[in-house]
């Protein structure tokens, strides 16, 4: 099966800055890929290349086998920019109908997508009465109309409250179950709530990670935090036994590599009644993201607190 997006060694140089350097990325049909990176990491540049608004300085991109920006490619892709302000005076239905006509979609599609994003009741109200979440859903409706094969969503959930965000991802999951590929960008991993098949991370125009979330977590191999609360008076014994650092007069905290985790835990359990509680925390998604997007600075800092067990 041909990939919907196939970018090979793409380099994009604007006058003074190199926005993308040697980026290769593929999106398979029906796959959900999250593109992460700081502001200015090159996410939007990659989107503009995929849309054919700009041409790469070097390398190649194809959209389902077509040149980006060609009529055939534009029939494949649907786009939702990070910020879009639809004409305030139009109703939601008029906005969706406008884009449906431009894309040559069937008239019945308008009602179907409004239904899907749950805007049917508000469809005949003017856009300036919509809440932020509703506007974002309207943007998604506009992108969904005409059954695109690739959805390109630029930071679709930034500024949404957690509930709207969750709802938004449910909608996207539903769309991708029907075979539509989704490439979306986001600020951080925690925003995604582990919902995408694959995560690609851009740092200063370079692709520094590309794989399923579990694989990235494994690859980063960030230390695991173990926090032990000692029984009263036993904190010194516990500290002497397992090392780490004392965070107050009752608890000891230490970081260790994944492979050392079981060894340390068995040692802690060997302390018996001297330990009151143990809390084990795996690295959060944010920490994994920071590891890749900051080139492991985080890990270096963590390395100071060595596991001395």
């Amino acid at each position: 099966m041909t990939e919907i997006v196939k970018a090979l060694n793409v380099r994009m140089k604007f006058k003074a800055v190199e926005a993308l350097t040697d980026v290769s990325l593929g999106v398979a049909p029906g796959e959900q890929v999250a593109l992460l990176g700081h502001n200015g990491a090159g996410k939007t540049t990659l989107f503009r290349l995929i849309l054919g608004f700009i041409k790469p300085t070097a390398g190649s991109i194809s959209i389902a086998g077509f040149t980006p920006g060609s009529d055939a490619a534009r029939r494949v892709v649907s786009y939702l920019p990070e910020q879009v302000a639809f004409p305030k005076m139009l109703t939601g239905r008029e906005v969706v109908r406008f884009y449906a006509r431009l894309k040559g979609a069937a008239p019945g599609d308008v009602q179907a997508v409004l239904d899907k994003v749950e805007l049917v009741e508000a469809a005949d109200r003017r856009v300036d009465t919509y809440s932020k979440g509703m506007r974002q859903r309207l943007g998604l409706a506009q992108a969904l109309v005409g059954n695109p094969r690739l959805l390109l969503l630029d930071e679709p959930t930034s500024g949404l409250d957690p509930l709207s965000r969750q709802h938004f991802y449910e909608l996207i999951a539903d769309v991708s179950r029907r075979g539509c590929s989704v490439l979306l960008s986001s600020h951080g991993l925690s925003e995604l709530e582990a919902r995408t098949d694959r995560v690609a991370i851009l740092r200063k125009g370079r692709l520094v990670a590309d794989g399923p979330l579990a694989e990235l977590q494994h690859q980063a191999d960030l230390p695991i935090r173990i926090r032990v609360r000692a029984a009263s008076g036993a904190v010194d014994t516990v500290h002497a036994e397992i090392g780490g650092g004392r965070i107050n007069c009752a608890s000891v905290e230490l970081y260790c590599a994944r492979r050392d985790k079981m060894r340390i835990l068995s040692k802690i359990s060997g302390l018996g009644a001297q330990v009151e509680d143990v809390d084990v925390a795996s690295p959060t998604l944010d920490e994994v993201y920071r590891y890749f997007s900051n080139n492991g600075i985080e890990q270096t800092r963590r390395g100071d607190i060595q596991c001395t067990a």
Binding site: L51, R74, E82, V84, F86, L102, K103
Partner: peptide
Amino acid sequence: DRGTLQLVLASPV
């Protein structure tokens, strides 16, 4: 400015 031209130009027109 409003981002709507990008949407129009992304469609096959």
